[in-house]
Design a protein around this nucleic acid. Structure first.
Lengths: 78, 78
DNA sequence: GGCAAACAAAACAAATATGTTTGGTTTATC
DNA sequence: GATAAACCAAACATATTTGTTTTGTTTGCC
């Protein structure tokens, strides 16, 4: 309850990493697609931040997946 | 291009307002469901902020819709 | 061993979201 | 007219994300 947020960040990060790797992209490559440093991608994937909706939207577009796939409830609710 | 973000915020806000009203909830009522002030809801609905992914996630849960429904591409890309 | 790429992580400044209060508008009810 | 509810919007302090740089680790290749 108190760390629903911490859990959310970790699961969202893992999900994005999972999708990125399934597309055979590196963090620097994904970053380049959305004009971001690879560290910004890394921070999200490692669950260190609660990213903005727009940033996830950009990442989803770059990875060519829907927001529904990124936020797949069954994967996020463990 | 330069204001993709501005566009995103406005469309996301309208979409959330649309869903909230379809559930016959007021901003104060939705806010109460996620322990937020109604002003925070209003700011999002009026496209004044780029909310965090977790906040949208909470709102989607409170409105009982999937993230895919909130970020419906056809509605967001106009 | 030496080198480069990919990644994790920390630190810093700058930009932005969030929490909160306040004022104002509209609508409806009495 | 008075009151209340819903909403928009601005302002402020605080917290957090974001952009950027830096350090270190691991892996693979030469």
């Amino acid at each position: 309850m108190a760390d629903d947020l911490k859990n959310f960040k970790l699961k969202l990060g893992k999900r994005i990493k999972q999708i990125r790797e399934s597309k055979n992209l590196t963090q620097p490559e994904l970053g380049a697609l959305i004009n971001k440093d690879y560290q910004s991608i890394g921070r999200i994937e490692n669950g260190r931040v609660n990213p903005s909706a727009y940033l996830i939207f950009q990442i989803a577009k770059a990875l060519d997946v829907s927001m529904g796939e990124v936020f797949d409830i069954s994967l996020l609710d463990e």
